[in-house]
Design a protein around this nucleic acid. Sequence first.
DNA 1: AAAAAAGTTGCCAGCGGTGGCAATTTTTTT
DNA 2: AAAAAAATTGCCACCGCTGGCAACTTTTTT
Lengths: 346, 346
Amino acid sequence: MHKQSTINDVARIAGVSKRTVSRVINGSLSVGESTRLKVEKVINELKYAPNAQARGLASSRSYLLGLIYDNPDALYLDDVQRGVLEVCSTLGYELVVHPCRYQSESLVNDCLRFMRRSKLDGVIVLPPVSESETLASALKESGSPYVRLSSVALDTQEHIVVSDDRAAAAEMARYFAQLGHKNIAFISGPQRYKSSTERMEGFQLGLSAYGVSIAADNILEGNNTFETGIECAKQLLRGTSRPTAIFANNDQMAAGVLKVAYSMGIKVPDELSVAGFDDNMLASRVTPSLTTIRRPVRQMALLATTKMIMSIEQNHKAAANVAAKVAPTLVVRESTGPCSHSDITE
Amino acid sequence: MHKQSTINDVARIAGVSKRTVSRVINGSLSVGESTRLKVEKVINELKYAPNAQARGLASSRSYLLGLIYDNPDALYLDDVQRGVLEVCSTLGYELVVHPCRYQSESLVNDCLRFMRRSKLDGVIVLPPVSESETLASALKESGSPYVRLSSVALDTQEHIVVSDDRAAAAEMARYFAQLGHKNIAFISGPQRYKSSTERMEGFQLGLSAYGVSIAADNILEGNNTFETGIECAKQLLRGTSRPTAIFANNDQMAAGVLKVAYSMGIKVPDELSVAGFDDNMLASRVTPSLTTIRRPVRQMALLATTKMIMSIEQNHKAAANVAAKVAPTLVVRESTGPCSHSDITE
DNA sequence: AAAAAAGTTGCCAGCGGTGGCAATTTTTTT
DNA sequence: AAAAAAATTGCCACCGCTGGCAACTTTTTT
């Protein structure tokens, strides 16, 4: 239990005022070369590390970033978190993780209180919480930096990094259509999330370009879990004129579809094509491996964090210039193939 | 951009001294009922939230917990994090996540600096970092609360929550033996991690109780990733006298084995039994679903966090009484079955 | 009813830094 | 070489809160 050394100790031993030590620590320019070296030497000898709380109190900076989310997929969160932490550790920030409930009435208050309480320098908000415009404007009004990760294209570059899920879903549609599928099903995510509706609309729009549309019966709503993927698949696959291709809103549900197909003896991809969205770890682990849309989650996290730290450090212009949009891409694996027309003839 | 209200505002408006407001906030006993209500009313009206930095500076408490880890499995980390956060949010703590490199020489310094810099009230250390005795003693010496999550049984209840992986692996051994398997293979994790050696030894010991031993050729070392699971499986399954059962150190590698078996046309579980360790999400998603050992990760995180907060709050006796050991359990699913003796006759 | 005990409340000094400005030293200018 | 300018350094107040102790009330005891 070693007594912590303070800035006063350093100042005394180095024979300077603590103000000067403070300058050295903060890399202030107006410190004489020799003085700086002397102080740095003492700092190292004492293994002195400034007290973040005191520093924060005096300068209203905490070097703490917050990550706000609501019950995300484990793999998605992990990707984001790694990306954020990568930038944080490089730039000397720490990350405070903060789950909350998107649906809760007190969401805005919870988040604002979290920021105030911990005196965060800024927050990164993940979907679906990032879809709350109430929260977004509260954050904007609060004046503290924030960045949202979102799947919904917006006209602004500020405070947001988006992936164009709509376009990606349309690409999947094109891919399906070109494989000759006509009887296609879609398992959506919760319709209360914009990311879900974006993907669905993108997919439908994409199909319509090829003159294909999805029968109402073939659109089911899951909640992005493996289990609901199973439920929806059971319903979709029970009939006689079952679809030849199923696109699920995410990989978890697509994995559920594979499971059901397997247990029903339906061959994938020969009799049924299945695709997911995300390209998380699961997609390559399951059998057959999943055709899916790769979302550059890590990269989004990197961009968001960079953008945020820049705006914290007053480089608002630079922050606005950090790319705000990434394009997900189609990854073709084993779970999709040409339509066999086994059920339907033209 | 609303001006933040301070304790002084509350004091002034409520017509009391700020010391009294402070008492109300901290739930101190000696505050008159009427005074307390009055102050609480003002606090609510002003939406006042105490400044954590100032509070920490004055009381040397930060209400910040740290989570230290090195490149863990995404699913494992997510489980732990959820568990920890559950307790944190109930008890008013925030969580700062901090990746580091177990192998690094500066590990101890990194961690100590992290704690000092952020003035953490305590840290939770995950495997494999938790296996570093150097770090453990440095933490002990530093005097700040910490709890390790580990797979290695220790004689102490202090500062640690363990899962008895050795016993669990032995149970898997018994299960395999009772299914009649004799030609058994094991894919271990990195031997530099104690958790890996514990599981391997437990498995071998368990088998030896049934007079079964593993051929040297049938012990391979992976690094707990899906990819090395595939590599090891390829090597194990290529010969003519291939094993009838494979136990992998974790689910990721077991999933790799399933993948290889599938591509080689080896039926699981008819021709080959496969088991993993962890029972994470993957285990139930893959086909066939994996027999595995369920580690009560969430519960360990709960216990660890409770234990730590108790010792932060000076309840050292109570902290020592929080359970320090959990027992993983066998979960039988589709990937294991009786030995078909197709390759080897007795 | 006075004294003692118990319960409340307020005052003031830090906690360990940073910011503004003044003071000092060094460099440049005339 | 003196004056002006620039660079360096130090002093002190303050960030917002809590801890210790004193002061003031109220209740209980004798």
